[in-house]
């Protein structure tokens, strides 16, 4: 049987949502653009799988955190462009603070000395 994408989506879910919302904060963007942006801004480290990206986009759209429209691209191609909604902005803020808490916490666990030194 063919391998399923489901598991990878689950692993990435929270993080990928955050990355997408963050990317869209800079302006409306289509799926390809979002994947390119994440890739470029992560120094080519994060390569978003299409099998994760599109389900995530459609899920965020269903949750009304982003909305989508058809636009014509520079080379006159019909592309689906996503933009952040008002609730999406709020969601981004809360996800960001959660992420920061999480990364602080993980950082604290990984290098306790530094944390103590600071305190």
């Amino acid at each position: 049987m063919a391998p399923r994408y489901q598991n990878r989506i689950e692993l990435l879910q929270g993080t990928l949502d955050l990355l997408i919302l963050q990317t869209l904060q800079w302006g409306p963007q289509h799926g390809y653009g979002i994947s390119q942006h994440i890739r470029a801004n992560s120094g080519e480290i994060l390569q978003v799988d299409t099998g994760s990206l599109y389900p995530a986009l459609h899920r965020l759209e269903r949750q009304k955190w982003i909305s989508a429209d058809w636009k014509l691209s520079e080379n006159k191609q019909r592309v689906r462009v996503y933009r952040l909604t008002a609730t999406g902005k709020k969601q981004l803020l809360s996800e960001r603070s959660r992420w920061e808490q999480l990364s602080d916490a993980i950082a604290g666990v990984l290098s306790p000395a530094k944390r103590e030194g600071q305190a």
Binding site: H30, G31, Y32, G33, T50, Y54, S73, Q77, R78, V79, R80
Partner: peptide, 11 residues
């Protein structure tokens, strides 16, 4: 959806 994915490929 098909078009959206197609546009991704083309871009």
């Amino acid at each position: 959806l098909r078009q959206e994915l197609q546009s991704h490929l083309q871009m």
